[in-house]
Write a protein that binds this DNA or RNA. Structure first.
Lengths: 251, 251
DNA sequence: GCGCGTCTTTGATCTGGATCAACCTTCCCG
DNA sequence: CGGGAAGGTTGATCCAGATCAAAGACGCGC
């Protein structure tokens, strides 16, 4: 599945796979359907869903959701990774999460987006207009249930991030990040020891409430302690998972 | 409405008002219904809701939800204030939020609670068993929509807290907390300048990722700068709202 | 009204991570 | 293949907030 993505560094241009095999039935062949809210729609009604969606590609660096703008569209990520962030007037930035394939973006009742989204590697999304999605929800209550489930899961993740940001030390933060990114970016939730990090050190720092320098120094220390191997800037291998997990938990 | 609560310091024992006037129709007379998810249920079906709920009182200090325990019940706060927190093995604590009247607790799809809840002043709740609530949801899809709305709002709040914890200075954190608590604890969302703080300095510190001493020093500084008046340990008056708001936003 | 425990404030000192400053490495792109 | 920009590492120094310490202030039970 997602294996395709990390075999070689595809630093930018081409998306690693096509999402729809048959342009008339895009949702039926969607690789991420099983991992996304869309699996709440029964097969026979997929055309209905497909009619409401438009596929869009964004290159690395493209901001495709801007905090504060009217929330006219919702997005379902089908490939790539985006960072979701809030920014302060003086440029300080907090990345509230990274979104990968299957992630639903725009969960907000309010009329404006609560965060911005930027592709950290080439991204493909399904875009739904707010009104069309609402009509699909109206016809398929199971989709609303699925969205509630998704929102609750994100809430749990957010609470873990608050614990991290409020109470963990720098090395506990980096260990927590490596473990959780390995879990979430692994194939279908199965953790892998080779972990691809499509985001920069600055992004990791802005997610963990640290500076670039501290992230870099902490990774170097983990390397010296034989907890990880740094294959190159954007790929590490976890050598001592148990140790990192213990550190992440604060034991 | 909530005015009753703060007129005098009721430091502990008695709850400030009764929730149900007629024990046979508790939900129909519930003071917090308009502010809670329960207003998704039409009047004529309130008996159905009431049958699924049990009223419970908890004294100050009582932990009524324990992180990690099976999530068998959901709660709707009808009076008082609770802190919602996660704890690390060595005792470090992060308060992920404070819940007041109208707040729905237990939004979690998972089988276990993601955080603990403790009353910081006497609390009254409506308790629903998971299964009963699910059957009510099944019959009233509007309730599910209301829960999704609630979850999304909490997600937005959580993202703001992440920005606070990851990137704001101590004084920006305290200013943000005062402004947002004034908003949320004010009557029906209207901010007031006299703000009652039922939680201790330790709780505020554990919410803001600071220490007791830093919170105390920052409040003293705000007092010296004439931004606030400290009426007593648990009540302050906002004197310079605009200044605090600007500080909170990081301008 | 007294004594005790809890909460809060204030002061002195310390330190983890930020900041400042090079330098190195990779990857474009012409 | 050479030059420049962006990203990453490493070292030296600094400082906001933590930690340590002690002394009020309040509230409660007797």
């Amino acid at each position: 599945m997602a294996e395709v993505m990390s075999a070689r560094r595809l630093h930018g241009q081409a998306l690693p796979y096509v999402v729809s095999h048959d342009p008339r039935e895009p949702c039926a062949h969607c690789e991420v359907r099983g991992r996304s809210v869309c699996d709440a729609i029964p097969d026979r009604d997929l055309a209905r869903l497909a009619a409401a969606a438009v596929t869009r590609d964004f290159p690395r660096g493209r901001v495709f959701i801007e905090e504060g703008q009217p929330a006219v569209d919702f997005f379902n990520m089908t490939a790539g990774t985006a960072k979701l962030f809030k920014m302060m007037p003086d440029g300080r930035q907090q990345i509230v999460g990274f979104a990968g394939a299957g992630h639903f973006l725009g969960l907000a009742v309010a009329d404006n987006y609560a965060f911005s989204a930027q592709a950290v590697e080439p991204v493909r999304v399904c875009r739904f207009s707010r009104v069309k999605l609402q009509s699909v929800i109206h016809d398929f209550p199971a989709l609303e249930q699925r969205l509630l489930e998704t929102a609750c899961n994100e809430l749990v993740t957010a609470q873990e991030t608050m614990l991290l940001l409020g109470r963990k030390s720098a090395s506990e933060r980096v260990a927590s990040f490596l473990i959780s990114w390995a879990r979430v970016s692994g194939t279908c939730g199965h953790p892998r020891d080779r972990v691809h990090l499509p985001m920069t050190r600055a992004d990791i720092a802005d997610h963990l409430g640290l500076t670039i320098e501290t992230v870099s120094r902490t990774l170097t220390r983990f390397r010296n302690e034989k907890r990880i191997r740094v294959n190159d800037a954007s790929e590490i291998t976890i050598l001592d998972r148990a140790g990192l997990e213990a550190l992440a938990a604060g034991e």
